[in-house]
């Protein structure tokens, strides 16, 4: 399978990527790790006329403590999240979850910014970032702006990013070295979640329980009011609208959400 023809440009900086996006408009797409975009282009589900390669921009690949948050550059690769000592000590959910993305080869290429911008509801990092109480930083023609993660995911493959914006930074709360857990249910190795649950600091986010990653708000509220893990987890599927696909029907997904939430909360508390 070979993608349709396109022009390839390498941006020399984030600023240049933003101006190239402005210049080429809707016909251009950013290329980071390419591990969502290239498969779609091979299937001709995406047919951009220009690819703006940003993968090599080291200026947007970093993980550092900044006040009460950890700042992660948008081009940080999954592999770098997995091996980061800073994340292990300060916000372990992110590295833990990154280790569940695909396989080692995929983690050598894919980036956190690409995963969030792609916004596949079955993906791992969107749920992790949602559970982490994050703030996202986007850079466009008008400069930088911040977007609360709760306002970022709008629907299937849809985010609050404007077409000319680059996701440059993800800021997650420092939660300390413990209390984070991820339960991912798959049938095959190297696959997306049928359902997954990310937990940290009393927040619970679900992957693949609807068109976008979702907070289990009823569970979070019950926990805040002192409910037991069992009782809180029983509410995990409340208000969700999971899809039917070849792997599972909505009822089965709701069941998984409850069971995985219970396991995730218990493991996080242990």
């Amino acid at each position: 399978m070979i993608p349709a023809s396109f022009d390839y440009v390498r941006a020399g900086s984030i600023d240049e990527a933003v101006s190239l996006l402005g210049e080429h408009g809707d016909d251009a797409k950013l290329l980071a790790g390419g591990h969502s975009l290239l498969p779609m282009m091979k299937l001709r589900l995406a047919v951009p006329e220009t690819l703006i390669d940003i993968r090599h921009l080291r200026e947007a690949s970093y993980i550092r403590v900044d006040g009460d948050e950890v700042a992660i550059g948008g081009l940080t690769r999954h592999r770098d999240l997995v091996t980061s000592e800073v994340l292990r000590a300060e916000a372990p959910l992110i590295g833990l979850v990154a280790g569940h993305v695909g396989d080692p080869q995929i983690r050598h290429r894919g980036t956190i910014g690409g995963s969030l911008a792609h916004a596949d509801p079955a993906a791992d990092l969107p749920a992790a970032v949602l559970a982490s109480g994050a703030t996202l930083v986007a850079q466009g023609a008008a400069g930088r702006r911040t977007i609360a993660v709760d306002d970022f995911f709008l629907g299937f493959f849809e985010t609050a990013l404007e077409p000319d914006e680059v996701l440059v930074e993800i800021r997650v709360l420092r939660t300390g070295p413990t209390g984070a857990h991820y339960e991912k249910f798959t049938r095959r190795a190297n696959d997306w979640a049928i359902v997954a649950v990310a937990t940290v600091a009393g927040r619970v986010a679900l992957a693949n329980m609807g068109g976008r990653p979702t907070r289990a708000t009823a569970t979070e509220q019950a926990l805040a009011e002192g409910a037991s893990i069992e009782d809180a987890a029983a509410l995990a599927a409340d208000g969700t609208e999971p899809v039917q696909d070849m792997h599972a029907d909505p009822d089965y997904r709701r069941h998984l959400a409850r069971v995985l939430t219970r396991r995730s909360l218990a493991a996080a508390a242990a």
Partner: peptide, 24 residues
């Protein structure tokens, strides 16, 4: 990007070469 038969090292790390452009 599933089977790994196309795995090569790019700057010393394994990647699946069916999902990398020569340009990259």
């Amino acid at each position: 990007t599933s089977c790994g038969a196309c795995t090569v090292h790019l700057d010393g790390e394994s990647v699946k070469s069916c999902t990398v452009l020569a340009a990259q």
